[in-house]
Amino acid sequence: MKTFRIHLLIAVLGSLAGSPAFAQTAPATESDKLLRAQVLLDRAHFSPGEIDGAYGSNMHQALAGYQKTHGLNPTGKLDEATWNALNADQTPTLLTYTLVDADVAGPFRPVPDDMMEKAKLPALGYSTPAEALGEKFHVSPALLAKLNPGKDLGRAGEQILVPNVVGTPALAQAARVVVSKDARILQLQDAAGTILAQYPVSSGSEHDPLPIGHWKIDGVHRNPTYHYNPKLFWDAKPGDKNTTIAAGPNNPVGVVWIDLSKPHYGIHGTPVPASVGKSESHGCIRLTNWSASEVAGLVQPGTEVVLEE
């Protein structure tokens, strides 16, 4: 990952965050350009995953999907034609956001890794205000901190800079969900096969392969509890028992469970957004919480799901 030159980023973006002219101004550094491209891809519903101002595998796939849908050469690279197409959306890269009481109210508490310890908690909420704000604005907590040096993210009334991912047009309902194991992406398509949206995913592993085939959505469940059965997990710890883990964004399946007609399999969120597209799963399709929440609003019981190589 390239070093993020924060002193220059703050000087340039901080002064221009509220100005429409910023959308037409050439970014001062490559990091600035990548950050803007990630924000614009997110706004166009081709998610690069967690916005971090760096070029990685998730951004490569987001660019390739955007390019293919917009009649551009699908290289996965931020070439001039793609940059110009993205900048048809002249929205500023950053916006100034004032923290409200709900942002800092918590309760915030550390979340243990052990399933049996998780089961003891009354709720699986956020561990810090920065984690909550990161999910709200689709940004890595590390980048959020760099954008806001010296700011108190736990104080209502504090003004901070965040990626401008709000106010995007609503999407139509999807006719089909297509998950590609090799590309590590989930696409929402209309009845004609046109891509409506694309998201990075983690989907299966050697121990728990993605169940290739055609399935359907059986139900959509928001803020689910998680029923942990160690017999279904090859890496369960000795002594683990069946238990139920409370709902919350740090629940093992995040804020959404979309049940598939394949028993024990679903599309769901995750408490670790940085891992999406870059790690394996226990066979299910894992998205960031914000992507899972968006997908949940665009599908319904009976929607076709295609899981392919």
Results as ranks from 00 to 15, higher is better:
200 P>T: 09
203 S>Q: 11
80 E>D: 09
138 H>G: 00
285 I>C: 06
10 I>P: 09
131 E>M: 09
180 S>N: 09
102 A>C: 02
182 D>N: 15
166 V>M: 14
271 P>Q: 15
191 A>T: 11
284 C>D: 06
229 N>Q: 12
63 L>D: 07
28 A>D: 15
72 L>H: 14
79 D>A: 12
97 Y>R: 13
199 Y>D: 07
75 T>H: 13
218 D>L: 05
267 I>A: 07
288 T>I: 08
39 V>S: 01
19 S>E: 12
255 V>S: 01
85 A>Y: 07
146 K>I: 00
112 P>W: 14
210 L>H: 02
228 Y>W: 06
56 G>L: 01
51 I>Y: 01
188 L>W: 02
137 F>G: 02
23 A>N: 07
54 A>F: 02
294 E>A: 10
132 A>Y: 03
133 L>V: 04
191 A>M: 03
46 F>R: 05
52 D>R: 00
234 W>T: 12
42 D>H: 11
85 A>N: 02
209 P>A: 09
179 V>G: 06
235 D>R: 01
125 G>C: 09
140 S>H: 00
178 V>A: 15
185 I>D: 09
235 D>I: 01
290 W>G: 12
298 L>W: 10
287 L>D: 03
167 G>H: 13
89 D>R: 04
265 Y>A: 09
93 T>H: 03
301 P>A: 04
271 P>D: 15
273 P>R: 05
125 G>A: 05
190 D>E: 08
22 F>K: 00
290 W>Y: 14
200 P>I: 06
37 A>F: 05
66 Y>D: 10
307 L>M: 08
248 G>C: 09
53 G>T: 05
239 G>P: 07
289 N>I: 06
136 K>V: 07
21 A>V: 08
